[in-house]
């Protein structure tokens, strides 16, 4: 992609009176030397994989390879039928995010968005927008280009890898990309999408990557639920007219600085944080047996 900052994306979209999603699609058609139709249908294929993962992950019998997780999406979906505290829209979105993440841990087929550890956030939000708000597919797919455009800038300026930037780089990036997409899907301006992205990152700044036994399960799966809550609330704030006081590109740079100064023990090495608790150590023994790492 030729854009190195979100600011450039916003300015181009404003000048051309297009959404950021449309700007990204146009850019990619040129860069990848492919027709827009081809790219749109490839993105739709990714959406289909996401939908299938939502469905398959709802199986009450689903268990991960390690045996540590599975079945929570189904539980959450049963609860969502009753509405819950945050209403059925939000609780169903939570169930869908759990479904994709649990399916990933059970060796199911998923779309890394942007990573496998954070793969539940985008489908959790987008499938829920289609199911509960009847948003047409084409709008969702255009929104995925918005999300991807934001994601590319984040990956270039900061990181999308837990080993490099902690969980803020994985679930944080996923929530930020999705917040921007949700804003444009709901008719927000390019500037509002940028603000939504900034507000989502700010809410996950500093989140460490501390997977129990080094597996993409605990706490990753539940952090995908946190990710959708932040994506929806950041988009709602932006659509309400709230602005990020710190411009989005500076927020992304701050995320990089935070990631760089995070200790190694908190960056996917399973040496610190939740991974270092007595219970986590027991779980590790349970899965891998007793041995020195």
């Amino acid at each position: 992609m030729e854009y190195l900052t979100i600011q450039e994306l916003v300015e181009t979209a404003e000048k051309k009176k297009m959404s950021i999603g449309a700007v990204v699609l146009e850019d990619q058609a040129v860069q990848m030397e492919q027709s827009k139709e081809k790219l749109l249908s490839q993105m739709e294929e990714n959406l289909r994989v996401m939908e299938k993962a939502v469905e398959s992950g709802m199986d009450p019998e689903l268990r991960s390879t390690s045996g540590l997780t599975g079945g929570d999406a189904w539980k959450m979906m049963q609860y969502a039928q009753m509405g819950g505290i945050t209403g059925s829209f939000m609780t169903k979105a939570m169930a869908r995010a759990l479904a994709v993440s649990e399916y990933n841990a059970a060796m199911g087929k998923i779309v890394a968005a942007p990573t496998a550890g954070s793969c539940g956030i985008m489908p959790g939000c987008l499938v829920t927008m289609m199911e509960e708000h009847q948003i047409p597919r084409e709008k969702i797919i255009e929104g995925m280009f918005t999300a991807a455009g934001f994601g590319i800038v984040i990956a270039k300026r900061a990181s999308i890898a837990g080993a490099q930037g902690g969980c803020q780089a994985e679930c944080g990036s996923a929530a930020a990309m999705t917040a921007a997409a949700l804003t444009e899907i709901m008719g927000g301006t390019p500037k509002q999408a940028a603000d939504a992205c900034a507000m989502a990152i700010k809410n996950q700044l500093g989140l460490v990557c501390d997977p129990v036994a080094g597996l993409v399960e605990i706490p990753c799966i539940k952090r995908n639920v946190g990710g959708i809550m932040i994506a929806f609330s950041a988009a709602d704030m932006a659509l309400a007219g709230m602005e990020s006081k710190i411009p989005v590109d500076e927020v992304i740079d701050a995320m990089k600085e935070v990631g760089d100064s995070m200790p190694c023990a908190m960056k996917e090495t399973a040496q610190g944080g939740l991974a270092n608790t007595p219970t986590a150590k027991q779980m590790k023994e349970q899965v891998f047996g007793k041995k020195e790492v």
Binding site: N46, K109, V111, A112, M122, G151, A155, L215
Partner: peptide, 17 residues
């Protein structure tokens, strides 16, 4: 890097590495 490096790859979980 293109859009499908970010929304993608389609893969079998749980870990890309």
């Amino acid at each position: 890097m293109n859009v499908f490096d970010i929304i993608g790859p389609v893969m079998i979980g749980p870990s890309s590495s």
